[in-house]
Nucleic acid binder design. Structure first.
Length: 192
DNA sequence: AGGAAGATCTACT
DNA sequence: GTAGATCTTCCTA
């Protein structure tokens, strides 16, 4: 399994969000491995983006967005932990939100974590996938480019799919650009 | 102390 | 399909 290098994340968040589709999120849990294919993402910027956590400037709680790329940035919204990967061009600010996965391996464990029997709703949403993968703020700041991490991102097969974009979901004030990306026709995306 | 926050589940019409 | 309750931190006053 080839891990995506740090340089992958040192680009415009929208590019990273798009290129992350089709790659694999790997969660190491004791002896178990949970694997999901990334099928939906959103890009967030810094001070010019009213929907961004970094909109109000650098604070302790959003500091990770200003720091080294390739690490997780995790926060809670409405009782759900949401997983982001810090991504920005050198010296910039930003992150990519992972919004949906296609379950690949460890499905029984995911089901136990979420107690649903419908596979389609197992990881099809930002709060759902963190629950299925047992991701909380304890994993905040983890380096997804390090093979020793409990959470990492490895290269997947990026063939035979089309990428669709739309406006970001659930944000109060969105930007003009379409910053949500997903694999067209995939049944595990959170919303058409 | 209070409320906002990139969401989810349930229970209806 | 839509509406409403509920979710749990952490920020802002």
């Amino acid at each position: 399994m080839k891990i995506l290098p740090r340089s992958f994340y040192e680009r415009d968040p929208a590019l990273v969000a798009k290129d992350l589709l089709g790659n694999m999120l790997v969660r190491r849990l004791r002896k178990h491995l949970l694997i999901g294919r990334i099928v939906e993402t959103e890009a967030y910027y810094g001070e010019n983006d009213p929907a961004s956590r970094a909109y109000t400037g650098r604070k302790i709680f959003n500091e990770l967005m200003f720091l080294e790329v390739g690490k997780t940035f995790i926060y809670m919204v409405h009782g759900n932990w949401l997983l982001n990967i810090v991504s920005h061009s050198s010296g910039g600010v930003g992150a990519v939100l992972i919004r949906a996965l296609e379950p690949i391996q460890g499905i029984e464990i995911m089901m136990k974590n979420r107690k649903v029997e419908n596979i389609c709703s197992l990881t099809s949403g930002p709060g759902r996938l963190t629950k299925a993968f047992a991701i909380t703020n304890k994993l905040s700041g983890v380096d997804v480019t390090d093979s020793n991490s409990e959470l990492l991102i490895v290269q997947g097969v990026r063939e035979n799919f089309e990428i669709e974009s739309s406006h970001r979901i659930g944000v109060r004030r969105d930007l003009q650009e379409k910053l949500r990306f997903y694999i067209k026709g995939n049944r595990f995306i959170s919303k058409l």
